[in-house]
């Protein structure tokens, strides 16, 4: 199997990371992103613990299994499931676009991009990227968050 993009961090974890049930496969994927003019645009395809490594020290990432998740990227299996999650988050946080993203982008993941979790009941799944994966080249904006 190809090395992972954040192998240096994954290797320090006691728990197997990515989890053993993650698999390389082909799948349509949608993700919240910021448009090209937004200051957060460069972070569109970066995991939480790469954007903010200091969060490793907080309660949320205390356990290695959580840290592992912090090096994965969140996706949804369809535009409608991503938009539904956005609507739910917006009920509690009307300003959520400022944190989540301004748009939804869609792309087609394949076996060379990394390994993925199963899709959960809400259409969400996680991806651990392989070393040379460049997701920004595979995804296009398909809708805005209003």
């Amino acid at each position: 199997m190809m090395p992972f993009k954040y192998q240096q961090y994954l290797a320090t974890l006691v728990t197997p990371c990515p989890p053993s049930d993650y698999q390389a496969e082909e799948r349509t994927a949608c993700r919240f992103v910021f448009d090209t003019h937004h200051e957060k645009h460069p972070h569109n395809f970066l995991p939480v613990l790469i954007i903010k490594p200091e969060r490793k020290n907080g309660r949320r990432f205390k356990k290695d299994v959580s840290k592992c998740q912090g090096y994965a990227l969140s996706f949804f299996d369809s535009f409608s499931n991503a938009y539904q999650r956005y609507i739910e988050l917006k009920k509690d946080h009307p300003n959520i676009q400022e944190s989540l993203g301004t748009h939804i982008a869609q792309g087609r993941l394949d076996e060379t991009d990394g390994v993925m979790s199963d899709v959960d009941a809400n259409g969400h799944f996680s991806l651990h990227e392989f070393e040379h994966t460049e997701l920004s080249k595979k995804f296009k904006t398909i809708g805005s968050l209003k």
Partner: peptide, 14 residues
């Protein structure tokens, strides 16, 4: 002292 995140998506929200 923080106890638990009640709402979370790529970061704590509540």
């Amino acid at each position: 002292r923080d106890i638990v995140d009640l709402i979370y998506f790529d970061g704590p929200l509540l």
